[in-house]
Design a protein around this nucleic acid. Structure first.
Lengths: 338, 338
DNA sequence: AAATTTGTTTTAATCGTTTAAAATAATATT
DNA sequence: AATATTATTTTAAACGATTAAAACAAATTT
């Protein structure tokens, strides 16, 4: 790469000081009382020499990188692509750039990534925390590093966050299955300590109880993340072999639903005729299924946008404390019957 | 954010110079002949004070940011998530970070993003160029900014690139449809000047001709990106209304295929019975379709990996010229019949 | 004892900006 | 004409690191 044109070069070209050039390049000619003609000359020379301010040098001086670090759980999740897009758009609106990395649900990677981003002096972090990452979060708090958690959070930690009410959403989903005539409602969820997913369990159970249905342990399928395909397959088989068999399945995430529906297809089970299906999150894939899949929908754009605005408030004035809980939508398809 | 611990602070703490600390922190104690005891003391103090080197300052001095700028076309594409993940992984292996942005197929955004990334002094760029971005590419070349194009490229520009042979892949796909007994093969593609997509048209036509089938203009559906849903819907209706009607459809991208299949579902057309279907790229969504969709598969991981290694070679020694053309796979489903 | 060698550490300039304070020039006021 | 005011520009230190060159100290050789 050729050496870049620096402030100094423009200054030398015109026989003025770098200070003057700096003022003009930052549009401070008014406050700093720069002569109009000088400003014009400087602008002209900057354009002619194709000057591009070195953000690195700028950052070093101002101690602001205008960069947000984003750690997502897995780039393949629909939630991730949606929220990343929203974050990027909102960041750009505020003249911020996003540096991004994926933890792939690994606590080690999460820690390493946080380190890398902090060393790069990002102004703040937006995080989808992984299982057992409380320590890392506490470290950030202790060191006054501005951050916002999204999607997931830890009830014991008093951190800024933007998420949905998972309990309520799961409650509503389950209640809908009951209302559409189902009583043997299976529930497929990851086997995890992540609070937001446990909240979905709680919502499921409570909705059943409130409708006079005793939760059946046999209808709850715990899926190990590492054995996703296997556990979903076995789980579906299992609940269909019960007596009485499951009359519906509630999937706690879109990924689980996709794998579940694949198996349901393979087993030639009719939806909604033989089995009602409901997914917590949506997926583009649902559109190719034999019938429209009823599902919840998180306000992903809002989550991303609010995460950025909260973070930027935090960066500007670190007194902010916000725990934003959003409502999630419910999209009626035909997979639960009428 | 609290003021960070700097080299200076460690130096002051121990009453030594920053140079010594710097040598130790960069593991150069051997070459620079630092006393073992001093090194130990320095390491201990660094750990105790929780020193984190300021990458910004480092970059300013070394003129290397260890950062790759990545501009993708749209974060919602499967190609994007796959290739981004591969790029990120390979970058990390080489101690590089990825800064990333999405052009959303807009030339203006593409230009702005390139600017932002260059100002941030990325060491190099990996680009999925958009329509009419030749100028921007030429600008990069003129200014010796290291970059690698992926997925798409311009035949007239002699740039480093990693992509598949779109002509050949499309040829093979079309030939497969012929071999499975189809003769009225519709082709759905974007209406675009992008070379890689035109190559798919060329492959389609040539395969037909080589099999003694005269290409029918009425079977080719041009989809405007801005009117994706509408044009796909009308297009499918149109080719099914022909006399003779289309007996199969070849979709030039996964997104087109998803929208096509959605309509095929809605129109209750049986696949492969009434209509053969083939998609150029794969999608997770295909797994929920009533039958496994036959499709091409790009070696996405290889593309990402090779893009990074090529770029890093380029950064290290700017004499590299590489035009890497990879083969694409073909996954036989059941959507074309036997 | 002086000179040399070896081992260890410091000095100081530099990267490209920003910015408060000082300096200079031009004009207005007395 | 001396002084004050205003307009414009420059100086120089700083951000936090790197690194060649110089400096110092101790040990070895002459």
């Amino acid at each position: 790469m050729k050496r870049k044109v620096a402030l100094k070069d423009i200054a030398k070209e015109l026989g003025v000081s770098t200070a003057l050039v700096s003022y003009v390049m930052n549009n401070q000619e008014e406050e700093k009382g720069v002569n109009k003609e000088s400003a014009l000359k400087i602008r002209e020379a900057a354009a002619r020499l194709n000057y591009r301010p070195n953000q690195i040098a700028k950052s070093l001086k101002t101690n602001k990188t205008h960069t947000i670090g984003l750690i997502v759980a897995d780039i393949a999740y629909r939630f991730t692509t949606g929220v990343t897009r929203a974050i990027e758009a909102e960041a750009k609106k505020n003249n911020y750039t996003v540096i991004f990395g994926s933890s792939d649900e690994s606590n080690k990677k999460f820690h390493e990534l946080a380190n890398v981003l902090i060393n790069r002096q990002v102004d703040g972090l937006i995080l989808v925390p992984v299982e057992n990452s409380e320590q890392e979060i506490e470290y950030l708090q202790k060191h006054d590093i501005p951050f916002v958690l999204i999607d997931r959070y830890f009830p014991g930690l008093d951190a800024n966050m933007v998420a949905i009410d998972n309990y309520k959403a799961a409650y509503q989903c389950t209640a809908h299955l009951v209302k559409t005539g189902h009583r043997n409602i299976a529930f497929v969820n990851y086997k995890t300590t992540l609070f937001h997913l446990q909240e979905r369990n709680r919502g499921y159970r409570q909705a059943l109880q409130d409708n006079g249905i005793e939760p059946q342990p046999g209808l709850v399928i715990d899926v190990r993340e590492k054995h996703l395909e296997e556990d979903v397959r076995k789980g579906i088989k299992q609940v269909m072999a019960l007596n009485p068999a499951a009359d519906s399945v509630f999937f706690a995430t879109d990924i689980l639903a996709i794998h579940g529906l694949k198996n349901i297809n393979a087993m030639k089970i009719k939806v909604p005729g033989e089995l009602g299906v409901l997914s917590f999150d949506e997926s583009e894939a649902f559109e190719l299924f034999s019938c429209p899949v009823t599902h919840g929908r998180q306000p992903i754009e809002d989550i991303g946008k609010l995460a950025v605005t909260t973070l930027l408030d935090l960066v500007a004035n670190n007194k902010v404390k916000r725990r934003i809980v959003l409502e999630s939508d419910f999209i009626k398809g035909k997979s639960c019957g009428e």
